[in-house]
Simulated assay, not measured.
Amino acid sequence: MTRPPTAAQRRVIDAADPVTGRLRGTDAQLAALVKRGLAFRHPRPPHDHFLTPAGHRIREAEPEQPEAPAATGVFTARIGGEESVPHAGPARAREVRGAWQGLLELRRMTNTDGATDRPCGWERTHLVQAAALALEAGEHRPAGQDLAGYRVRATPQPEAVAVYEPDTAALRACAATLEEAGWQVGEYTEPRTRARYLLASPRRA
């Protein structure tokens, strides 16, 4: 078994960009993470370092990060139905725009052809968050405790999420946003409840 990262390496991993996985650290720290298979150096300039899937798993294994300042909270896209949600004001809108631009940059740097109109590997391993970010960046309203809106949920199907939205027009607008963001989308009806929902998967080509 591989030894766990040192405390200093763990701090570098925990401080990685929440969307792109881009790392900041000394050359020695980054080289050590690459050697352990927890990071990779991108071949294109400026040759930044990013977490590998193994690095992402280590960071997500312990969501509590007591050594990080409380003010540096990790961005989380709203999947709908959260008990505690970020204030939906200008600051949140800026955070969403920044996260979406970061995701487009990750697509550019990690898709083999540099395409930004097609989901990347990170999105395929974080389906619910990726779809929710696309919807929130598209200015759709997530459901609150007492408010209608979209809800993104995992499904038993590989590489597929379900999107629920009680308003038919809003549901179809969500479908259009996801398709524009590079997802394949189909509209379905639940047999028992007759509720309409979307089944969305990241497009591969």
Rank of each mutant, 00 (worst) to 15 (best):
R97D: 15
R3C: 11
T155V: 00
M109N: 07
L23R: 02
L147C: 02
A70W: 09
A134P: 09
H42G: 02
H87R: 15
G149A: 00
I58G: 08
T125Q: 10
D146Y: 13
V96W: 06
R124D: 11
A160Q: 13
L199D: 01
A16T: 01
A160C: 08
T72A: 15
T177M: 10
A91I: 12
E83N: 13
E123K: 08
Q145D: 13
F40D: 10
T189A: 14
H140F: 07
A88L: 14
E83S: 12
L33C: 08
T155K: 00
H140P: 07
A31I: 09
A7S: 10
Y197A: 06
D146T: 03
T193M: 07
P156C: 03
T177S: 06
L127I: 08
V96G: 07
A176P: 05
Y150G: 03
Q29K: 11
A99F: 06
L198S: 05
F50N: 06
L133S: 05
Q129C: 01
R36T: 11
P43Y: 03
R107N: 03
P142S: 09
A162I: 02
R203Y: 04
E62Q: 14
V12E: 04
R11Q: 14
R153K: 12
L133M: 05
R22T: 05
L198M: 05
V74T: 15
E179W: 07
P4Q: 13
G98W: 08
D27E: 10
R196H: 15
A71G: 15
A16M: 00
P191C: 09
V85F: 00
A8G: 10
Y150A: 08
G144P: 00
R141F: 11
T193R: 11
Q29F: 03
P66T: 03
M109V: 01
T20N: 00
A154V: 11
T193I: 09
Q184K: 03
P119M: 00
V185W: 03
A54H: 02
A61C: 02
V19P: 09
A148T: 06
V128Y: 08
V161C: 00
V85I: 14
W122D: 02
R108V: 04
V163Q: 06
P119K: 02
G114H: 07
L147M: 11
R22N: 07
G98F: 04
V128E: 06
S201P: 10
H126A: 11
M109W: 06
L127V: 04
P46G: 09
L127M: 10
L199F: 01
G37K: 11
L135V: 09
Q65S: 14
A77M: 03
G114A: 04
V34T: 06
